[in-house]
Structure formats: C-alpha cells, structure tokens
C-alpha cells in the first residue's frame, strides 16, 4: 500500500495504523478529493505569485486565505499534520500580508508542496 502520509507521521502510516480498514477508506477519500486539492494549491500559487509581483488584489488575497484555512483543517484529518500546520501559517500570513511577507509566503508554499509532493 502506498503511504498516504509522510513517513514520520504515525497516525496515517499504514504499517502502524491501528485501523487498516479505516486507513484504506480514508486513502480512497484522499484520492477522490485530489482534484480539489490541486485546485487549492494552484490558487495559492497564483496568489503567492501576485504577492511576489507586488500586486496581490483583495479578492485573490481573501480567496487564498480561505483556501489555506480549508487546507489547514483538511490535511491534518487525512494524516498530513505538518502540512496542515504549514497551511495554517499560510492562512495567518494571508490575513494582512505586507510587501515584505512575499518571501514568507513563498517559503510556506514551497514547504507545503514539498510535504505533499509524494501524495499528489
């Protein structure tokens, strides 16, 4: 079985998961919702790019904050705890980003994609 979560995460590691049947069903749900996860990450890419270019508009900022909030709640539920925490950092930074925060946003997003890379 392909690991659903980072290997350092005991909650969703298939070799140690206390309920393999539940794990398998959760894995199916994760796969089912991958398209929306990709859409959310793409929107964050767009928002971070706009912030880096110095013209993040309010509509995109609010969308990015909302998407990061959703990811922070969802990723941990599937066992991606650290990724969920990074999404929470993104949400916090997107609340009122200053021009100086562009590099912070880029780093958060890079880390988020790195943590999820094997599972997308």
């Amino acid at each position: 079985m392909v690991p659903l979560a980072p290997r350092n995460d005991e909650v969703m590691n298939p070799s140690s998961h206390p309920d393999p049947e539940l794990f398998a069903l959760l894995q199916d749900l994760w796969k089912k919702h991958l398209p929306s996860t990709h859409e959310r990450l793409d929107l964050l890419d767009h928002a971070v790019q706009m912030a880096s270019d110095g013209h993040l508009d309010e509509t995109v900022r609010a969308e990015a904050q909302s998407v990061a909030h959703k990811l922070s709640g969802n990723l941990g539920m599937f066992g991606y705890k650290e990724a969920g925490e990074v999404a929470s950092d993104l949400e916090h930074t997107f609340k009122a980003p200053t021009p100086q925060d562009a590099s912070v946003l880029r780093e958060h997003l890079r880390r988020l994609r790195e943590l999820l890379a094997a599972y997308l």
Partner: peptide, 16 residues
C-alpha cells in the same frame, strides 16, 4: 460546506 470534511466525518462515525 466542505465535501471532504463531511465525507471523512461520516466515514469515521459510521466505521468506528
């Protein structure tokens, strides 16, 4: 309002 939250919570309560 989020499909994945509803589905994971449903699965959790039904299965466990």
């Amino acid at each position: 309002d989020e499909d994945d939250i509803r589905e994971v919570a449903s699965l959790s309560l039904e299965a466990t």
